[in-house]
Each structure stands twice: as C-alpha cells, then as structure tokens.
Design a protein around this nucleic acid. Structure first.
Length: 556
DNA sequence: AGCGCGGGCGCG
DNA sequence: AAAGCGCGCCCGCGCT
C-alpha cells in the first residue's frame, strides 16, 4: 500500500496536516484529515502488509504528531531512499523520478496544480481540498509510489541489501531525533542577538558615513573604496569580479595603509556578526516550536557519499571555536548533554584503505603508547623524533589530510599557509616514506574510470558515482568519506540496539549529540563510546571519545 | 515580488 | 602532468 500526506507546509510544528492519501498501483484515495481522518487511520490499521512511502521521515512526522499514528517501521519502505542508493546524483523527487522510470505523464498533473495555485495565489495551506488538480494529484501520489516501488525496491534489495537495511534503520532513528528536537535557551539567545545587532548597527553607520558602503557583502562597493585608498586588487572570481573574501581582504589588510586596514577590519567584523545572527541565532528563534524546542530537519541520505545533511536550520555547521552559537542549546531539566566523536576517522580509514604498513604502525603505536599520530608520521619523514610543538608536525598533518582529499602540493601549501617550496619536500618525504596512500589513490582512480560511468564501491557495497573530470580528486576521498559515513551510521544503529536511541539529538558526520538524565550520563556516555568503537574490524583501531557537557552545547 | 546564480562562509 | 572532498544558508545582483 502506498501512503502519502499533504500539509500546509513542511513543518508539523508550524503547519497542519490536510490529507492522508492511500493507494495501490491502480487506485488512489485522498482523505481530508479534518473530515475523514479516522477513516484513513482505519484503513492503515486494518492493513497488515507492507507500506511504501516517498520520503518516509517527512510523512512520519505528520502521521505521528498530527494524526497520532505510530509508524510500523519494520513494514515500511521508502522509494526516495531506494532511489538515492541506486543513483545519488539523479533527481529523486516523486514526480521527476516516476516520469523517468514509469511514465512521462507523471509530470503533467504538477503543471495544472502549479498554474492553478499561481493564478489564485493559493499556498499549500490555502489551496481548497476540492480544487480538482489538488485532490486528484494528491490521490495519484500513492499510486505513483506503488509503481516506483516495483522499479526500485526489489532492485535495491538485490544489489545493495546491507545499504538499504542500514538506511531504513537510520531513517527510523533520525525521525526520532527530529521529533525530540533540541532545547533552546531563549533568554541567552535574545541577549546575544541584542549584543550583535548593537555592534552591527554602529559599525554599519560608520561604514556608510565614512565610505558610503551600504553593504559589507558588496564586492563592487568595497573594491571601489579600497582602490581609492590605494589598494591594488589582484584577486578575481571566475566571472572576473574582484574577489573580496576573507582571505584576500586579510591579505590587503596586512599590505595596505592604516585607513584601508581599519576599513577591512570593520567589514570583516560586520560580516562575521551578520553571519552569526542571520544564519544562526535568528533562525533558531524563528524555527523553534511553541515550547522552545528546535526540530531541525535531517536528510539521512543527502550527499552522494552517503553523508547526512541538515536544514531548517543546519545544526552541522555551527561555529566550533567561538562558543557563543552552540551555547544556544541546553539540556532538558535534570539532564546533561553528551557529545561523542570518532577519533580521526578519515585519517584512520585512509591508513586502512592504503594498507600502508608505516601509516598503520603509526596509528597502532599512537594507540598503544598514547602518543601523537602526526608526531609519529613526521618522525618517519624526518628520521628524528618530532615533538608536538614542532612546526613540522602541523605541516605533516596538512600533507596527510590533503592527500586524503587528493590535493596537489600547490593546494597543500596554500591550505597550510606556507610557500610551495617549503611544502614540496614534506609532500615528497611523505610519499617516499608512506607510499601506500599514493598507490591506493591511483588504483582507485584507475578502477573508477575504467567503468562506463565512473564510480567507487564502499565496503558495504554502496556505489558512489564520480564526475569523470574530477575522478582523481574525488576517488579516494569518496571511498573514505563514504565509508566514514556508513561506519558512523552503523554506530548509530548499534546505539539503538543498545537502547540509548531515545537520548540522541543530532548527528554531525562523525559526532553524535545526546541529552541524558544526569544520573545516567556516565553509563550512557560509556555505551555510546562503545558503539562507536571497532578494535579489530579494520587494519587500525576505530575509537571514539565522549564528553559530558554540564549545561550548554559547549566543551568545558 | 520571485527566482536562480555567484560569491562567501560556517562545519566535518 | 596535475588536479581538495562533502554539505546548507545568507546576501547581492541580474533577470523575469
């Protein structure tokens, strides 16, 4: 049975459920929730077979929160998940997908509905349920979904069985995280908003009065003023516009006179303040529910590598070093927040996949003797003991990570902030001492481009497509990032099996945040660490470290 | 007014 | 021969 819902908007905490639709390959029913909701639930409850959805976690929120219906996860399929496993780069919306895989006519209804809504200025909340294109194509959705099911799910279950099982488990666990949501501290946020806007207003007034600059993001305005102040602009975007990003402005700041330097200092400070307030604080408040809980959306299969993404708002890119933004999130009463992240998981998987004896030994030594991995690697390159404060350690670290990402020596030097000539011997020394990574990088590239459409295969059997003209830089990184993503997802399913899934809040690529009653914190932190640890499944250990945060999402 | 894009910037 | 990977959100800008 195919199931779908229509609502007034995307968030069940801000909009209403309007219809529940059910259907099979030949019939679809569109049931208005207000009038006949009980009937729809009757249908769902009396059915004992398997359900198919397109973007189950989205509908699950409305079904559980608005309809009070418990999703029978073990009887549910998701054709969106299946489609993204088949090909993560293909448009995966219900209608584009159906038109491609089943019948081109699937797209025609969308246009009628769009035109009608535009003409009448209807939104998803106000379009009348009896507007024919609305109910007609709502009822069609579960029908299309049943056709899609046949094209996608058996194929995915046959070709990617472990990946599909893992992704369906993650959809279930992350749905629970979304419904739980994160608790905000509104007083704290408001105070920070006021502090930031006081600065921004004063600085903007100064920029306008002194230089006529009305926007700190306008490259045109800024470059004109800098030029007038004697700065020679020498960096440009692909389109030929003056490049006014942070790196270049900081460069001009160092080489220009005091006036230009002061101007740049203000521009960067305002940009930073605007970013913090606009991207983060304002959105936190705007998107919170009536109880001050923020239910950010998790896309469990967003990136082609299998990574998750988040939106509305994205909680995976909160500033890390400045504690202010993360401080907006607090534990529930009587609870503490726990964060647990995998230790250097990409570098460890790089060592694992490279099969390089030196890199593997460097990790094993570091784990066994509690020493620093990068000091060990640097020691191998330079043939002498390297201490943690030695600048050669940082250079080595840059070379290791850049290599995992397929960067060339030029980019390595740029990232490290050193001249090319200084980076070259380090890169050469690394490749001579630890040749496995280069060999693996080349092998993966050759294997991938030998295929009709280039792709790599992860240990779980996931296919990650590569762009042919970028395959060299994507290849090894896709394998590492892709397996890190699926390993992390496996860890999360272990947490569910261990019974701590009820505490989980947010997945951040290699880190999980949890909200735990204070008296269970030590025990849960230990369990989560254990779920993220694998001591013998790889050529190096995969380990994790948990921190208990007494109040806010801030390391102490 | 709404849309798409480029540029910019936050994270892992 | 040499080649940084993956996201989401904000604003300015040109276009419709």
């Amino acid at each position: 049975m195919g199931v779908d819902t229509e609502s007034g908007g995307l968030s069940p905490w801000h909009t209403r459920l309007r219809t529940i639709q059910v259907g099979d390959k030949h019939h679809g029913w569109c049931v208005p929730w207000d009038q006949w909701g009980g009937g729809a639930l009757e249908i769902l409850n009396s059915y004992e077979g398997e359900f198919t959805w397109h973007n189950l976690p989205h509908d699950a929120k409305f079904m559980e929160i608005k309809a009070g219906w418990k999703v029978p996860w073990n009887r549910c399929h998701d054709t969106l998940i299946g489609a993204r496993i088949q090909d993560p780069t293909r448009p995966a919306g219900l209608k584009p997908l159906t038109s491609r895989l089943v019948d081109p006519a699937a797209l025609t209804g969308q246009k009628l509905l769009d035109d009608g809504m535009r003409q009448q200025k209807w939104t998803w909340d106000t379009v009348p349920i009896d507007f024919e294109p609305y109910w007609l194509y709502a009822a069609l959705d579960p029908v299309l979904n049943c056709h899609l099911y046949e094209k996608i799910i058996p194929d995915v279950q046959a070709r990617f069985p472990m990946v599909y099982d893992l992704e369906m488990a993650i959809v279930r666990i992350c749905s629970r995280m979304m419904m739980k949501g994160m608790r905000l501290d509104p007083g704290y946020i408001q105070a920070e908003q006021l502090r930031l806007s006081a600065f921004t207003e004063q600085a903007k007034a100064w920029l306008k009065a002194t230089y006529g600059i009305t926007s700190v993001l306008s490259a045109g305005q800024i470059s004109r003023v800098l030029t007038a102040l004697g700065v020679e602009i020498d960096a440009f975007t692909d389109q030929g516009a003056p490049k006014m990003d942070k790196d270049n402005l900081e460069r001009y700041q160092l080489t220009s006179g005091p006036q230009a330097a002061e101007l740049i200092r203000y521009i960067l400070a305002v940009r930073h303040a605007v970013k913090l307030q606009g991207t983060y604080l304002d959105n936190f408040m705007a998107m919170a529910d009536a109880d001050g809980i923020l239910h950010a959306s998790i896309n469990t299969l967003a990136a082609r590598t299998g990574r998750m993404s988040m939106s509305d708002p994205n909680l995976q890119n909160l500033p890390r070093d400045d504690k202010m933004i993360r401080g907006s999130f607090i534990s529930r009463d009587g609870n503490v927040l726990i964060t647990c992240d995998l230790n250097q998981v990409e570098a460890r998987l790089g060592a694992h996949f490279s099969e390089d004896e030196g890199l593997i030994k460097a990790f094993n030594d570091a784990d066994e003797f509690g020493t620093d991995f990068f000091c060990g690697v640097a020691g191998g390159i330079y043939g002498e003991e390297i201490l943690k404060k030695d600048p050669r350690r940082q250079l080595t670290k840059n070379v290791v990570y850049s290599s995992l990402y397929g960067a060339g020596t030029r980019k390595m030097a740029q990232t490290a902030g050193v001249p090319f000539e200084q980076m070259q011997p380090v890169a050469d020394g690394f490749n001579a001492t630890y040749p496995g990574l280069q060999t693996t990088l080349n092998r993966i590239y050759e294997e991938a481009i030998a295929r009709d459409k280039p792709y790599i295969v992860t240990p779980l059997g996931r296919h990650i497509p590569l762009d042919r003209d970028r395959a060299f830089t994507q290849g090894l990184n896709s394998l590492i990032q892709g397996h890190a993503a699926e390993y992390f997802k496996i860890c999360v399913t272990r947490m569910e099996a261990a019974g701590v899934d009820e505490f989980l809040l947010v997945p951040v690529h290699d880190e999980i945040i949890a909200d735990v009653p204070r008296d269970q914190a030590d025990e849960v932190a230990r369990v989560i660490e254990e779920c993220m640890t694998d001591l013998d499944g790889y050529r190096v250990r995969l380990t994790a470290g948990a921190d208990i945060l007494p109040e806010r999402w801030q390391k102490v």
